[in-house]
């Protein structure tokens, strides 16, 4: 269950162009958060909190790793913080990736840009269950690439850049074939990428994590919704998601 918590910033480093990795300490969140959940972070001088997905957890040290890309005034403000300072967050929020019945299978992780981080904690959790992991990470250019080594430690890993400045050239969908056989997939990234992936992998069991501009982040304001395929109407990304079955929502 989400709570309003203070988290202490332990470390802060730029790991790629405009991309910050922050490790924060909080006992409650580190002990309860699951892969795919997010923190709703209050930013000084800003009305709305910023949803940032959880990239890793260290339960022994009570730490949570979050990554964010500096894209606007809110994330720019977050990027001025330093270790020793604290953040006001709601967390852990949302429903994460379902990982129960995946024993003895091969899982494909497909991440794009700042959608890569939640897949790392997921991949780590799956790898601990001796599940075979294959990952495909897509970035705009060489300058934006991060976590290549971390994902390589989990299993076979492909990096692809839009302009070919690093790894394969093209989009994540272009290298799915190279990845070989897999049983199901998990994906997080920009909407056009998720559209392409779910279309290409139609019929395969998969889960996708979505992002949207959020208001409350707790399911009350109905700002971040996604149309559903079956019933008509909408699901709330912050509280019904952010992770959905690929077949459940209409991208």
């Amino acid at each position: 269950m989400m709570k309003k918590e203070k988290v202490l910033i332990n470390s802060f480093r730029q790991i790629a162009l405009d991309t910050i990795e922050m490790v924060v300490e909080n006992a409650y969140i580190s002990q309860t958060a699951k892969p795919g959940q997010f923190l709703h972070v209050s930013v000084e001088g800003h009305m709305l909190r910023r949803p940032i997905s959880i990239a890793d957890i260290n339960k022994e040290k009570n730490t949570i790793t979050i990554l964010f890309k500096v894209v606007g005034s809110g994330t720019a403000k977050l990027a001025t913080l330093t270790p020793g300072m604290s953040l006001d967050v709601l967390g852990p929020n949302g429903n994460g990736f379902q990982i129960d019945d995946q024993q003895k299978s091969t899982i494909l992780l497909i991440g794009g840009g700042i959608g890569v981080p939640p897949l790392y904690y997921l991949g780590k959790t799956l790898a601990e269950k001796n599940i075979e992991i294959i990952s495909i990470l897509g970035f705009q250019t060489k300058d934006y690439v991060f976590y290549e080594e971390k994902f390589s430690n989990l299993g076979r890993n492909y990096v692809v850049t839009d302009d070919g400045s690093y790894g394969e050239k093209g989009f994540v969908t272009d290298v799915v074939k190279m990845a070989g056989d897999f049983d199901s997939y998990y994906s997080c990234g920009p909407l056009p990428m998720l559209k392409a992936i779910t279309t290409k992998l139609k019929g395969k069991p998969g889960m996708i994590s979505l992002e949207e501009r959020m208001g409350c982040g707790v399911g009350a304001c109905m700002a971040c919704v996604i149309p559903t395929k079956k019933s008509g109407g909408y699901k709330k990304i912050c509280s019904d998601g952010p992770v959905f079955h690929a077949e459940e929502v209409s991208l």
Binding site: M47, E212, G232
Partner: peptide
């Protein structure tokens, strides 16, 4: 069902 997204802006 409401409006399409984005529905909010800071």
């Amino acid at each position: 069902f409401g409006n399409p997204t984005p529905r909010v802006a800071e």
